[in-house]
Design a protein around this nucleic acid. Structure first.
Lengths: 114, 114
DNA sequence: GCAATAGTATGATGGATGTCCAACGGTAGG
DNA sequence: CCTACCGTTGGACATCCATCATACTATTGC
């Protein structure tokens, strides 16, 4: 039976602000960048070591799913999460690419280069 | 004399999360999308009619500037704002393009198409 | 100088948000 | 069945944030 947790919005109802608010968080952006490999990833605490509480991760996963970014697949005791890549690319062309392109480090602050 | 207000961060110190947090707001996203025409726009209340208070617009403009997205040029009594396009494109390739690509309307909600 | 205009500064406020903690609910294995 | 594991739920809490209203500064023009 489909639990309340597994529902996700239709991609057409997702606005750009919804997506941006979802990824405007260090942890959630990292999750999306990791999910960009196309593979499903578990929600297990071993995979995502951000130093936050277990329930905090649940909160972030729910935020991503409600924003239309991810899909959750329940397989017994373990849950896997994956990016809704095709739908997102069709709705917001180039956005996921831009978000998951690894940011240029540039080493240090501007003061260091002055 | 350079007022405190005119300072903006070095582009290298701007993180992706900074940018995303800045545009994760309906009004500020609209501002960025409008600024994407490359032209400088005034901060005057006539140009931006979002139905919010004058000081609220000041808050949004400051947020965008502090996030490294915009540059403010003071010309006497009027201030003009413009997108730091080249720097942003170099630091976050494709991001501004993706943000300013007009979102597909798709008319109505998912329920309407069912 | 004085009034009008453009924009900022400051303070208050209600709502959203990230975090933790404790308790709960399925699932797998003995 | 009972325990361990994976993940969620609900509450509590502190912080951030968007907004407004008022007061203030700076510039232009009479």
């Amino acid at each position: 039976m489909a639990r309340e947790d597994d529902v996700m919005p239709d991609i057409a109802d997702v606005t750009m602000v919804d997506v941006l608010r979802a990824v405007a968080d260090p942890i959630r952006l990292r999750i999306v960048q990791t999910l960009a490999d196309g593979q499903p990833h578990g929600k297990c605490g071993t995979h995502w070591d951000f130093g936050v509480h277990k329930s905090t991760m649940t909160h972030h996963f729910r935020t991503l799913r409600q924003a239309g970014l991810t899909r959750t697949v329940v397989a017994g005791r373990t849950h896997t999460i994956e990016l809704r890549r095709d739908e997102l690319d069709a709705r917001f062309p180039g956005l996921i690419d831009a978000l998951t392109t690894t940011e240029v480090p540039m080493g240090g602050t501007a003061a260091d280069r002055a």
